[in-house]
Amino acid sequence: MQPPVRPRVGLFVTCLVDLFRPSVGFAAVKLLEDAGCEVSVPSQTCCGQPAFNAGDRAAARDLALQVMDAFANVDYVVAPSGSCGGMMVKHFPELFADDPRLSARARAFAARTHELVSFLVDVMKVERVSASFPRKATYHDSCSGLRELEVAAQPRKLLGTVTGLELAPLKDADVCCGFGGAFAVKYGDISDAIVSEKTNNVEDTGAHTLLAGDLGCLMNMAGKLARRGSSIEVRHVAEVLAGMTDAPPIGAPGKKPA
């Protein structure tokens, strides 16, 4: 399907970006506007994934309906997250499978919902970005984006057009970082073992910056790297693609006023 000339995109900013790292949201807005989209930000809270994964289907359905209502009047729904994207694309239809009317609505909603970077490449046919990041970076594939939405080639393609950026391959880039939402807290020591393995691999790349497309994974890995005293900086891939890297990296202190 050809996108409209100037598609109306509703940014589903995700609760973590909304609360912890608004700069990712603004980077997403810039990337979408540069690609020719008209961006709006409907009133929103959460896609409902925490409730869904905790087994609370009633709350998950309420929140899914709330999202579908809020984003009823846009051509596309775009999220800077494969996790929330996967929830809306794969699991909203599953949530309403027993209700023919809502299920049709959820499927139609899913069909116009995308993860940010794959939307830019696959739908808006973005070939390159105008950004510069003269650093060695490595990229972690967040699980939901990779396996539910097949986000893998798109970020690498666009990162390849960032001036000065050297992308070092990450061993086991497709293996989970150990975040898993509530898992990271409920089974903290298992999560710790998994993220330790991940950060070992990240350190082995010799990269200056670690990138990924999901803030949950990024906060987990950044938190672990910081705890280990690593100097590796951690950022959402959208910040680099948008050339908006003024904000301090995730978990790093702000620049002291001179």
Binding site: V13, V17, D18, L19, F20, R21, P22, S23, G25, F26, V41, S43, Q44, A184, V185, K186, G188, D189, S191, D192, V195, M219, N220, A222, G223, K224, A226, R227, A247, I250, G251
Partner: peptide, 23 residues
């Protein structure tokens, strides 16, 4: 309130105002 997290890793601080408030 997040000791399960901070026992093993640091918790990144939020940047400040929420995205929706800034928007």
């Amino acid at each position: 309130f997040a000791s399960g997290w901070t026992q093993h890793r640091d918790m990144p601080a939020p940047q400040g105002s929420t995205f929706q408030a800034q928007w």
